[in-house]
Design a protein around this nucleic acid. Sequence first.
DNA 1: CTACCTCTGTCTAATTTTTGTCGAATTTTT
DNA 2: AAAAATTCGACAAAAATTAGACAGAGGTAG
Lengths: 313, 313
Amino acid sequence: MDYLHNIKAVSMRTGLSAHVIRIWEKRYGAVTPARTASARRMYSEEDVARLALLSQLTQRGFSISNLVPLSDPELTRLLEGGGLVVAAPTSTEPLLDEDALIDQALKATRNFSSKDLVRCLDEAMLQLGASGVLERMLLRFLRKIGEMWAAGDLTASQEHFASAAIRDYLAQRAQSMIPSTSAPRLVVGTPRGQLHELGAVISAALARKAGWDVIYLGPSLPSEELAHACMRNNASVLALSIIYPLDDPALAEDLQQLAKLLPATVKVFVGGPNLAYYESTLIAMNARIISDLSAFSTTLRELRESGSAPNLT
Amino acid sequence: MDYLHNIKAVSMRTGLSAHVIRIWEKRYGAVTPARTASARRMYSEEDVARLALLSQLTQRGFSISNLVPLSDPELTRLLEGGGLVVAAPTSTEPLLDEDALIDQALKATRNFSSKDLVRCLDEAMLQLGASGVLERMLLRFLRKIGEMWAAGDLTASQEHFASAAIRDYLAQRAQSMIPSTSAPRLVVGTPRGQLHELGAVISAALARKAGWDVIYLGPSLPSEELAHACMRNNASVLALSIIYPLDDPALAEDLQQLAKLLPATVKVFVGGPNLAYYESTLIAMNARIISDLSAFSTTLRELRESGSAPNLT
DNA sequence: CTACCTCTGTCTAATTTTTGTCGAATTTTT
DNA sequence: AAAAATTCGACAAAAATTAGACAGAGGTAG
């Protein structure tokens, strides 16, 4: 019934090293495990759960000494609330507006500093909320990067670096929501030749947040592949991001082919800074152009709720 | 009807050595097999099942002395609740385990099931440890994907999906170690034309684990960009992954140019399934070919400790 | 800006307990 | 006779314990 765990098992389950588990006990009394006759620590299931919570929260930047006085339910709330519950600890910095945050993010990108970029995004999450970051800030950031790149103020490696760092950030912090089994599927990617994946990354995070079961494919997929992935997974939406180049005849052709391959049940959404060149093609294939991410988000929610997705195997 | 097994058979079915089975009986009374008139141990099917459970659980860090007092249903519950495994009963060679995990991962990839893929990776982390997963399993998985893709058994979208899912997984669970300020820098990416980033992802995770400050650039960067990123960040190592195509003359040229652009202080490591085509170029540019990831890992640790990295802003 | 301080995690060393492996002598099975 | 199991004791390796030292990050006061 109440099995007790040795420190090794606890270490494996919580991701904390045995050293840290002991030192937390000694310094802060984080948990007080039972002891065997020979002084081995034996942890209850509750101990393990608490340590797991502490582990998650310290990884997000909370300090262990502040965490320890809290009860388990408080820790849980903190974790779920994304840290919004408790006042920011002793930050005397002036509140940054969206523009300042974007500037900071650009600076971090220029310096290849993932640490600074993460800090900036954390700050932005607090200031603007998840939807503010996804729907507005990151989008503007992305456009800005595009402009600077075109102007030669930013290198491709810096752009790639930022994409990768933001991708990792979103994977880590964006709610790792497990989509319900009834969630409709959405395939995200960029078409062939489109190497910039940040737009797709943002859309994927947004869709996950809207309760969709997202299948993320990454950049540069030919139309057969996109169509195959949609059909194989019975997806009801395909979201594409087009950023550069913005006038690729091969891409227009590819899109036309995509329209032929794709069953009519799959709605196509396309986003990008300036889709004028592809507009006629997109209209012909009945794709919807995303110009506003919050509208995209709303649409996804509506689609999900209207449940127009008869999912079968 | 109740067939009884001799100790050898039990040993093979549970993966435990005959020695261990006996000593567990003697010290802890793990099971009490029937005996023949001449004192041979004869194990029932239930005995075998219990030993198999114990074997699985000890492999995960539970200690045998704690386990023995539990009943079979309790052991089962522990196995299911504590780990994330469904676990086929009683199949146990370590080699087979790794193969089975890879098979599972391939199946998840084919089905575009990130849930299954994550579960499989969690399981693998427990069974093989982080370095086992990074240095062996994922590498073999990657090769297998390459083969299947070449054979037409897997689509590009499936390959992309797996890359993205594994990338997210590693971002989430691999310890988001914050490198110390004195950590030497390493730039990771794939050269121009190389769209498959999984190899680079694995190297990046490995390097982070070895205490390096990793700057991840993602796929397909021209040599100027790679060189620029290295110099801009005062990196001491550049790690490249080359997977497909394996005979691209443009890439060979690009590598030569890279050698010219890169300062001599930057060591170059290159990994890939079969680098014969580029070998002469790589040797000429004094790059080191990675054929064994655990050796790569060791080398990185050594380099870091020998501390030949005068870092400046 | 520097010098100090605290917080936190890592690491080492010496010791003890737990656990797995081995060899030798003996008996049974093939 | 060779192969397989048995028991027993010895031993080696792994894991856990304590205590203390140490280093990096970040904050604070001068």
